[in-house]
């Protein structure tokens, strides 16, 4: 079944077409979401929500959009929402003064805070000999600003090209290049902290 036909059948509420869609995209969606939320149960929940939203809003899908890019966009948006929610819960539960710390900006961006971003996530698709390094890298990725995190995840975890990322993020090629460049710089900075601390 080609994509335009799949879309037409989905818009008619065809259950078999929906099954085809889920089975075609489930790994891409789950893998993307997992890399962002870094928690298998949350990733499962968010991935299900992504397909529910796809089913419910496929009627409004159209124009020049590409189905794959549209699904990736829903997945990254929902994953970031879930990550934010989980992060906010941890933040609120962290210390009685964490709200004040947040207000006065003493908490984010400038220093590693392992209480809020524990580097304990192990991606199941990483090669065995790389697991320890990947665990450290995912800890650093979780601290990236959202847009950089999405661009880096789509490129390095999902293997999307720069052009495909522009379609998902609805931005220009130069913006994607800039996001990925800044993401790498930030990761280098954080990894440098980590390895200096380790010495």
């Amino acid at each position: 079944m080609d994509v335009p036909q799949l879309i037409r059948e989905l818009q008619q509420g065809n259950q078999a077409a929906f099954r085809t869609l889920v089975e075609t995209y489930q790994s891409r969606v789950y893998n993307t979401v997992l890399a962002i939320v870094q928690h298998p149960d949350d990733a499962e929940d968010v991935a299900q929500e992504v397909f529910v939203q796809v089913f419910e809003s496929i009627g409004r899908f159209g124009g020049d959009q590409k189905l794959t890019a549209w699904i990736y966009r829903i997945a990254t948006t929902k994953a970031l929402e879930a990550y934010r929610k989980r992060h906010a819960r941890k933040r609120l539960g962290a210390t009685p003064f964490s709200f004040l710390a947040r207000l006065f900006g003493t908490d984010e961006a400038d220093g590693p805070d392992d209480r809020l971003h524990p580097a304990d996530f192990e991606h199941p698709g990483v090669k065995l000999e790389q697991q320890e390094r990947a665990r450290i890298l995912f800890g650093a990725i979780s601290r990236l600003p959202e847009q950089q995190k999405v661009a880096f995840t789509l490129h390095h975890v999902e293997g999307l090209s720069y052009q495909e990322i522009t379609e998902v993020m609805q931005t220009s090629l130069s913006s994607v290049e800039s996001l990925l460049h800044r993401a790498k710089q930030n990761l280098r900075k954080r990894l440098a902290w980590y390895y200096k601390d380790e010495q």
Partner: peptide, 16 residues
Amino acid sequence: IDKTLRSLDGLERASP
């Protein structure tokens, strides 16, 4: 740092 940044090379997609 370089080695760690390359640690996702060859990563396989996770499936639900």
